[in-house]
Amino acid sequence: MPSLGDFLAVGAGLFVLGLFGALMKRTAVAVLMGIELMLNAANLNLVAFAAFSGRISGQIFALFVIALAAAEVAVGLAILLSLFRSRATVRMDDIDLLKG
């Protein structure tokens, strides 16, 4: 029977992999994927704590996070499309307009 710590360990692994992907990938779409992985790790922790404490609030929080993540992905990908249209690139290192 897996304990709460096992679920949290999986969440930690998922978060670290998402962080690594978000910082290492060149394509903006892949960076967004890394961010989604990190959000999923946080959600997994919330639901695991909710289940082991026998309360429902953690699951409600996870639902809110899912709704916010969906909105974030929609806006993020729209920004990406707009950026691709104006600068014809999706590589993160080509987008350095704010660099001094």
Partner: peptide
């Protein structure tokens, strides 16, 4: 949504 974004931008 991710697949659409990949389709509409350049794949490298």
């Amino acid at each position: 949504l991710f697949l659409f974004a990949v389709m509409l931008t350049r794949r490298r």
